[in-house]
Design a binder for these strands. Structure first.
Lengths: 200, 200
DNA sequence: CGCAACATTGCACGGACTGCACCTTTCGCG
DNA sequence: CGCGAAAGGTGCAGTCCGTGCAATGTTGCG
C-alpha cells in the first residue's frame, strides 16, 4: 500500500524537517530560526524545504492535510443509531488516545512550542478549522440539515473543535500527567449538560 | 477624551488603510495586492503602512487589539446574579447588535473577503482566541475555578467564540438578510440545551 | 514664537517564498 | 539487466514582506 522506497523516504524527510523545526524553535524561539537552519539540520537544501511545507510555520506545527479529513470520515462511519454528540465523543476518544500514544513525545513538544507563539496557535487553529468544515458537512448529512442556513452543523463542528483544543490545553497545563482522553471526555460532559456553572 | 487633531487623524488613516486593503483584496485577491498598492490608495508611504498594521493580513482583517479585551470586561461587569451562560448571552447580544449596525457595510465586506482566504480566517480566529483567553480569566474569576487545571473556563470561553463565529457564518450565508443577534441567540439556545440533534 | 513630542518618510537590509532550469534517483517494463 | 520516463532534489534569480535607523516634517503647548 504505502510501500516503495520513494514514499518512505519522503515521509522520513518530512518528519525530519518537522522535528528539526520543532527542536530548533524550542531552543531559539520562532524568530531565532531561519528556514536555512531547519533545512541544514534535516540535511536537505533550503529549496527542498518548500517542497514539503509551504511555510516555516507549517513545518513547526507539522500536521499533514491528510489527517484533516480523518475526523469527518470517522464520524460518518459511526452507526446511525448514535446521536451526533455520542458519535463525536466516540471519535474524539479514539483521536485523543492516538495523540497521547504517538511515538516520541511529539505532541507534548508541539504543544509547548505552539503555546509560546501565538502565530503558531493561529496556524493550528487553521488546521482545526479546515477539519471542522469537513465535519460540518458530515453532521449536516447525518441530521438532514444544511451547512449554509442552519446553525446546527457549523455550531456542533466548531464546538467539537473547542472541546478537543480545550482538552489539549488542560493536558499541557497538567504537564502531560493527566489523561488526554479523560480531559476531552470531561469537556463533553459539560457540553452535554448545557454548560452549567460548576458547583464549588 | 479622544479629541485632538492628532488622534483623529491617526484613526482616519488607520481606517483608510483598512478600507483600501479590503477593497483592493476584494477586487484582486490577496496575492494580487501588495502593501505598496494599499499604501498608495490610502495616500501614505509604504513605510507608514507598518506604523499602523504589523502585517498586510492584519490590515485586511482590520480589528484593533483594543476591542479584544472588551468582551471580557463586559462579562465581568454583568450582575453576579446571572449564570455564566446568561451573562455571556447578554454580552453577545450587545456585541452582535453593534456589529450589525456598524457604519458602512464594513462587516459584510470583511466577512466576504475573509471567507475567500483561509489565511485571513486564521488571522480572525487569532483575534478571537486572544479575546477568549481574557474571557477565560474572567469566567474563572466568576466561578471560582482556575484556568490551568479546570476545563470549565477555557471551554466556555472557546464555546462562546464558536457561537459568535457560527452566527457570523450563518449571517454571511444569508447574504446579510438575517438578523445577526437572532442567529447568535439561536446558537446559544442549542448550546444551553446540550446540543440535541435537531428535530426534522 | 520656539521647543519638544510625535508622525511620516526614505533607505538599506535580511528573511520568506516562488518559478525555472538542470541534475540525480527511483520506478516500471521489456 | 538495462533503459527510458517520471519524480524528487538543488541552485539561481527575483519579488515581496517586515524592521531598524536616521532624517524630515507636523502638531501641541508653554
Amino acid at each position: 500500500m504505502t510501500s516503495g522506497l520513494r514514499e518512505r523516504k519522503k515521509l522520513a524527510t518530512r518528519l525530519a524537517l518537522h522535528q528539526a523545526a520543532l527542536q530548533l524553535v524550542a531552543e531559539h524561539g520562532l524568530d531565532g530560526v531561519s528556514v536555512d537552519d531547519i533545512a541544514a539540520r534535516a540535511d536537505v537544501s533550503p529549496r527542498t524545504f518548500f517542497n514539503y511545507f509551504p511555510t516555516k510555520d507549517d513545518a513547526v506545527v507539522g500536521i499533514d492535510a491528510s489527517a484533516v479529513g480523518q475526523a469527518a470520515e470517522r464520524f460518518a462511519a459511526r452507526p446511525a443509531s448514535e446521536s451526533p454528540v455520542e458519535a463525536l465523543r466516540a471519535v474524539h476518544a479514539l483521536q485523543a488516545a492516538e495523540m497521547a500514544d504517538e511515538p516520541e513525545t511529539l505532541w507534548p513538544l508541539r504543544l509547548r512550542v505552539i503555546d509560546e507563539h501565538p502565530v503558531l496557535l493561529a496556524r493550528l487553529h487553521a488546521v482545526f478549522a479546515s477539519a471542522e468544515r469537513a465535519l460540518a458537512e458530515a453532521i449536516a448529512a447525518r441530521t438532514g440539515t444544511t451547512v449554509g442556513p442552519d446553525v446546527y452543523p457549523t455550531l456542533l463542528a466548531a464546538v467539537s473543535g473547542a472541546a478537543l483544543r480545550c482538552g489539549l490545553h488542560a493536558w499541557l497545563a497538567s504537564d502531560f500527567t493527566a489523561s488526554l482522553p479523560a480531559l476531552v471526555d470531561e469537556a463533553w460532559d459539560v457540553l452535554a449538560a448545557g454548560l452549567p456553572a460548576p458547583r464549588r
